[in-house]
Simulated assay, not measured.
Amino acid sequence: MKIPVYLISGFLGSGKTTVLLNMIEKCKKKGLKTGIILNELGTKNVEETYFKKQNVKTLLNGCICCSIQDDLNETLRSFSEEDIDLLLIEGTGVANPIDIETALTTPEFTHIYELNSMITVVDGSHFLEHQHFFTSSKEIRKLLKQQISCASMVILNKEDLITESSIKKINNKLSGMLKEGVSVFRTAFGNIPETDLFKKRYHLHTSMTNQDHSAVGHRHNHSSLRSIQIEGVAEVDRLLFEKWIAELPMEVLRGKGIVRFKGEPMNYHFQFASGKLRLLQTVEEKTPIIILIGDSLNEEKLNQNFHSRMSE
């Protein structure tokens, strides 16, 4: 019997990991043994604490569709030898799902895996902004189109942050990108009914003929989107850190990591997306780290700015 696969994609900060965690929880309640492939642009996975006691294999320091394609194939071979009931794959925010689809539908893997759904998560609070010529780059617009046009299911996330009139505009934009018959599900926190989320929506004979083949082999079309690391992070003042986050340049699309605040006994995981900062206290004693992802980021300048602000 083939192993069903669900591929989760979406732009930076759209809520992919939230959807993935919801799916894992639903699988756990059913007693299903789940394999998970995570892909990170940076050299460290700062979100691994979210996946404790899970069968996770992480592909670091690259995008699945580019520099670590061989690692993906090797990981698929590894999971094929394990006793799992299904496989969940989360690409980076700059991954083109078509490249992952291509790997899964090669002769080597089609007798092992069955791709059930290509789920694309859309950040409703920033989608229109990312579509605008004056507030995003050509690369971002092209990447978003790639992620949406190959989807067999779209999750329009963060609807709590947008108005109904904006949702109508988003749906109009989406309708011009989606394949015929693809459903769009609205949610605030990526929580979709189980029957909808795990439904088989992918059909090889229609998907591979209908997709935009000009997107395949895009290898370098997100060359300006990169991950950087803030070096030498020690204890910081909480108010100064929150102020620094709020004043990050618009080129910074995503931030995550671990910070320690002065006078507090425990570390915090932080997530920065859609212009909002979330902090979650953790008992884990890990070295503080700050990772920023965005468009044409100047690593040296951002490092200098961080340390100058934290020393005020």
Rank of each mutant, 00 (worst) to 15 (best):
V122G: 08
I140E: 05
F109K: 13
F109L: 10
K169L: 10
G190A: 09
E139K: 13
A151I: 04
I170N: 05
Q131I: 07
L143I: 12
S125A: 14
T102M: 10
S136C: 03
A188N: 14
K142R: 15
I119S: 10
K145C: 14
N157G: 05
S175K: 13
L115R: 14
S165K: 11
Y113A: 11
S137Q: 07
Q146G: 11
A151N: 11
D160H: 06
L143E: 12
P107I: 11
N157C: 06
S166E: 14
I192A: 09
L143K: 13
F127C: 09
T120K: 14
G124P: 02
I162R: 01
F109I: 15
S125P: 02
L144H: 12
I155C: 04
E194P: 03
I162W: 00
F185V: 10
F189L: 07
K138W: 12
T163Y: 03
T105L: 02
T163Q: 09
M153K: 07
G181P: 02
I112D: 05
L128S: 15
R141A: 11
R186Q: 13
S137Y: 00
S166M: 07
E164Y: 08
M153H: 13
A103F: 00
N171I: 02
S149T: 15
M153E: 05
I140Y: 01
I140Q: 04
F134I: 15
M153S: 14
H126A: 15
K168F: 01
V122C: 09
K168Y: 02
I162Y: 01
T106L: 08
K138D: 10
I119Y: 11
K158M: 06
E114Q: 14
M177Y: 12
E180A: 01
N116T: 05
N171E: 11
G181D: 08
R186G: 10
T120C: 15
F127Y: 15
S152W: 02
A188P: 01
S137W: 00
V184E: 04
N116P: 02
T135Y: 00
T106D: 02
L143W: 11
L174G: 06
K179Y: 03
Q131S: 14
H130E: 02
I119R: 14
R141Y: 08
S136M: 02
I162L: 10
Q146H: 15
